[in-house]
Each structure stands twice: as C-alpha cells, then as structure tokens.
Simulated assay, not measured.
Amino acid sequence: MSQKIRDIMTSSPVTVPEQTSVHDAARRMRDADIGDVLVMDDGRMCGMITDRDLVVRALAEGLDPDWTPVGDICSTELISVGPDDDVGHAVDLMRHHALRRLPVMDDGRPVGVVSLGDLAMDRDPRSALADISSAEPNS
C-alpha cells in the first residue's frame, strides 16, 4: 500500500490574510519556526509566501516590510496536493516544477504543507537533508 500525504505533511498550516504586512508574516514564520505561510483572501487560499520570497521579492527590491502586503509578493500560481494523494505524486510534482513545498488542500481549504524536509525525513531519515530538517531551530 502506498503512503499518503497525510502521513508525512505538517498539519495546521499557518495562514495570513493577503493584506498582512511582510514584517508580520516574517514574525509569524519566526514564531512558528516555519519557512512559509499560506496567503488567504476571503476564506480561500490565493498564494504562498516563503522565507526566500521575503528576501528576494521584498527586501532585495527595497520594499518597506511594514507597509508591503504579502499579497503583493506571494506566489499565486500554486500547485497543491490532497491529503489522500500518494507521496510519490508529491515527489513527482516537486521534481517537475522545482518546488520545495506544496500546500495540502482538502475540499478547497488548506490542511497542511508537505516540504522537501518532510519527504527526506520519511524517505531517507539518515540523509543530510533529513538531519537538517529535524535539527533544533536556530536561536
């Protein structure tokens, strides 16, 4: 029997409204020790923003993190998986689209995120990526 996304995903994803400032989104990531938040518009997911997006799309462009909304810099063309999809399907999508994270959607609402680290810890727990993914957070 193939393994399902629900078995390895990080559940209860952190979400923010699209008008949330980049600064507030960064604090949410820091406080939750995560590298992404899902961006919501009127109850539906409209994007995803990662720690790398904060640097490349906001700070490096000179945007004011206190006034720039995440909706202006988030990725909006999202590829997602469902909780009952096979893990192999997520691997194929991540490989094909060069993605590090996939939102997990159930009935149109986000229920989790599956990351390269989740896959590494599941597929090869002795790999360097699994070690890094399971390490204590930086202070």
Results as ranks from 00 to 15, higher is better:
124 D>I: 01
131 D>P: 00
82 G>D: 04
113 V>P: 03
78 L>C: 06
77 E>P: 00
128 A>I: 13
73 I>H: 07
82 G>R: 04
135 A>P: 03
79 I>E: 13
121 M>H: 03
99 L>P: 08
112 G>Q: 02
133 S>I: 01
83 P>Y: 12
135 A>Q: 14
100 R>P: 05
130 A>N: 07
126 R>E: 14
121 M>D: 07
73 I>R: 08
135 A>R: 14
122 D>Q: 11
101 R>P: 09
113 V>R: 04
77 E>N: 15
93 L>G: 05
137 P>K: 08
131 D>E: 12
75 S>Y: 01
69 P>Y: 10
133 S>V: 00
132 I>K: 09
100 R>L: 09
114 V>N: 06
74 C>W: 06
88 G>I: 02
132 I>V: 12
127 S>I: 08
108 G>M: 11
128 A>C: 00
134 S>Q: 15
111 V>A: 07
85 D>R: 08
103 P>S: 12
77 E>D: 15
128 A>T: 06
96 H>T: 11
116 L>K: 00
109 R>P: 00
136 E>H: 10
79 I>G: 00
109 R>V: 13
77 E>G: 11
106 D>P: 00
105 M>C: 03
106 D>C: 12
125 P>S: 10
96 H>N: 10
69 P>K: 05
84 D>T: 13
104 V>S: 13
71 G>Y: 02
130 A>W: 01
94 M>A: 06
122 D>N: 15
107 D>L: 05
79 I>M: 12
121 M>G: 03
98 A>Y: 13
95 R>I: 02
136 E>C: 00
93 L>S: 10
91 V>W: 00
94 M>R: 07
105 M>W: 07
83 P>R: 07
70 V>D: 05
119 L>I: 15
87 V>R: 02
127 S>P: 08
137 P>I: 04
128 A>Y: 13
134 S>L: 08
109 R>W: 02
107 D>T: 05
125 P>N: 10
110 P>R: 10
113 V>F: 05
122 D>I: 00
120 A>E: 09
134 S>W: 03
126 R>W: 02
111 V>P: 06
82 G>Q: 13
133 S>T: 05
87 V>G: 04
89 H>K: 15
73 I>N: 01
81 V>C: 12
90 A>R: 05
74 C>T: 06
117 G>C: 01
74 C>Q: 06
90 A>S: 13
121 M>Y: 01
99 L>N: 10
82 G>E: 14
105 M>Y: 08
84 D>H: 09
91 V>E: 12
75 S>P: 01
104 V>A: 06
84 D>G: 10
129 L>R: 01
86 D>F: 04
105 M>H: 10
128 A>D: 12
85 D>Q: 12
74 C>A: 15
115 S>E: 09
110 P>Q: 11
102 L>H: 04
105 M>L: 13
97 H>G: 02
71 G>V: 00
86 D>I: 09
99 L>S: 07
83 P>I: 05
77 E>S: 14
81 V>H: 02
74 C>Y: 08
117 G>Y: 04
